[in-house]
Structure formats: structure tokens, C-alpha cells
Write a protein that binds this DNA or RNA. Sequence first.
DNA 1: TATCCATGTGTACGCTAGTACACATGGGAT
DNA 2: ATCCCATGTGTACTAGCGTACACATGGATA
Lengths: 178, 178
Amino acid sequence: MARRYDPERRQRIIDAAIRVVGEKGIAGLSHRSVAAEADVPLGSTTYHFKTLDDLMVAALRQANEGYARTVLARGALQDPESDLAAELAALGSEWFAGDRTGLEVEYELYLAALRRPALRPVAAEWAEGFADCLALRTDPVTARALVALIDGICLQVLLTGAPYDEGYAREVLARVIG
Amino acid sequence: MARRYDPERRQRIIDAAIRVVGEKGIAGLSHRSVAAEADVPLGSTTYHFKTLDDLMVAALRQANEGYARTVLARGALQDPESDLAAELAALGSEWFAGDRTGLEVEYELYLAALRRPALRPVAAEWAEGFADCLALRTDPVTARALVALIDGICLQVLLTGAPYDEGYAREVLARVIG
DNA sequence: TATCCATGTGTACGCTAGTACACATGGGAT
DNA sequence: ATCCCATGTGTACTAGCGTACACATGGATA
């Protein structure tokens, strides 16, 4: 059991890192910027997270858990009677509703795995966890394809600035489900 | 008509930027690193590209043109007799064959649009150009979905380290085509 | 109680970054 | 022939970075 004067210190640093990425992007993430945001000294961020990769791993894992909760909270996903494509398209609407900062943080950290091997296992956790959840309603191959398609749809919205079209998402997701 | 002592200077800088991104990622891209790679003085990179965003725009546009050529070179894509899903899945195999550096550079710059508005029009050019090309064989909605699915499949391979499975890609692409 | 060490803090160093600017050069327009 | 200015070059400034390290502190353990 760890001994700490400020038992929340580590968690506060992770929360601050997510806020920094939301405000300035990964490019603005540094031990110093996080320390300032968390209101702790520089040495505290370098002590708890030796490298920025370590910090990003913790931040991505936490962001993933948040989005996993939005998936699990949609209980109808598990209901065999529900329209899976419609439920997933509605989940997308939920993600894009209101402030997109959280979704941008999630994807920015997720995509950072492209160049940061340390993040890959955590990125894989998200993709596999989501797919496992969907596989309960379909089969592993279809589930994996659904995750890929959802990623692609979300990215096109985020990258090109196009609006999220729930009807379109439902239509093409339904085709993959077959 | 521009007057330049080294008429290729600007182009050499763009080529160097793409090599730098391939070797060190966007995080390693700076006016100085590109100047060193292109073997030109620092002032030359800052003169031709006032900001790094400008340089990334030029690099992404050039990378896009390269991949657009790989699409157009696959003439069977336009042949109504060919199996569109199979052709697209084979195109993916071509992209992942051998050295993946080029594909990583393409996606890293493409995904950078998430946080860099200057890149969004160029990212949109790629997505729309590819979709327009596919729309000749299907319809605009299906074409857009195919681009999204291909992006999603490629990203899952690049992000999680999973192998590219052409048979799987063909199967799920075919479902979207319907 | 006495000791240890995980945790917390402050400071300094060397490096690299974007930026700015003065100056050099030579092709094109007049 | 002359001048202009797009282009090319070298250098210096300031800011922020990761890193390292010495030292402080006080719960946990024996």
C-alpha cells in the first residue's frame, strides 16, 4: 500500500493532463504545463510520471474508462430486441452532443498510439473492449468491423468538420451487421 | 512567376519534411530539423513556410497526391465488372506491403487535422476525393461509408499493431456495398 | 520510540525551439 | 545600365523543455 501525504495527488495530475490536452492538445502537454494546471510543483509531475508517455498512458486509460461507461450505460445495446445499428448511431449522437472536448481528447490520445508504442496496448484495450461488448450481440468479426466503422465515421466528422449524421451512421452500420 | 536561385528549394524542403515526419514523427518536425534534412539554412525554411502548419499543409497535400495516384493506378476500380470490395481490400494490402513509413506519414499528417484547423481542408480534400472516385462505382453515401471503413480498418492495424487481414477487409467492405 | 524511505519541493543546467532581423545576391523589369 | 525586391544566409534573443539532484517531511514499520 502506497504512503502519500496527498493521496489524490497522482489522480489530480492525470485530471490536469486531460484538461491540458483538451485546451492545448498533446503538443501543449509538458510536465510543467500539467504541474501548473494541477497546481503542484514541477518535481511532483516528474516524480509520479517519469516520462510524458507514462502520463499519456494514464490519461488515455482514464479517458477510455469514461467512454466505456457511456457504452455500458446504454443498456439497450445488450438487449437482443433492440436495433443495434440504431443504438450505436444514437451513441455517436451522444458523443457529439454539446462540448466535443472530451471526444477530441479521447481521439487525440488514442491516435497518438500511431507514433508512441507505449500507448498501443491501451489503444488496443479500448478497441478490443468495445468489440467484445458488441460481440455479445453479433459475432467477433462483425463487432470488429463495427468498431472500425464507428472510428472512421467519428474521425471524418472531427477531421473534416462535417456534421455528424445519425441517420447515415445507422444506415451503414446496419449494412455491416447484415 | 516566382524568381528563385534554387527553383527546387521549396520542393526540397517539403520532401525533407516528409522524411523527418517518417523518421521522428510530427513531434520531431521543426524548422531546424527540416532545414538540416534538406541541407538548407534555417532562414530558408522559415522564409518559405512561415509556420509549421504551412509546412504540414504542403506535406499532407503532397502525401495525398501520392496516395491518390495509388488509387487511380488501380484501374480495375473503375471497371464495373470488377469486384469493388476485393479491389479495395487489395489496395489496402498494397498500402501495408513492405515499408509502412509512407502510410504512417500520411495518417499522421491526416490525423493532425484533429487539432490543427489549417489541415482540415486538406484532410477533407483527401476524404472527398477518394469518396468521389468510389462514387463512380456506387453512390455518394456508400462511397463515404467505404472511405470511413477503410480509414477505420487501417487505423486499427496501425494503432494496435494487429496484422492487416485482406479477407476480412473484403468481407466487411462488401457488406457496406450491399 | 527510532528508523527508513516513499513522497514532496525548489532550483539549476543544457538543449532546442520559434522568431526576428540585418545583410548579401542576382534575375527581371524599366 | 540601373534599380528593385524576391530570395538566400547567418546570428542572436527569449522562452520552454526534460532532466537531475539535494534536501525536507512525516507515515509506516520494527
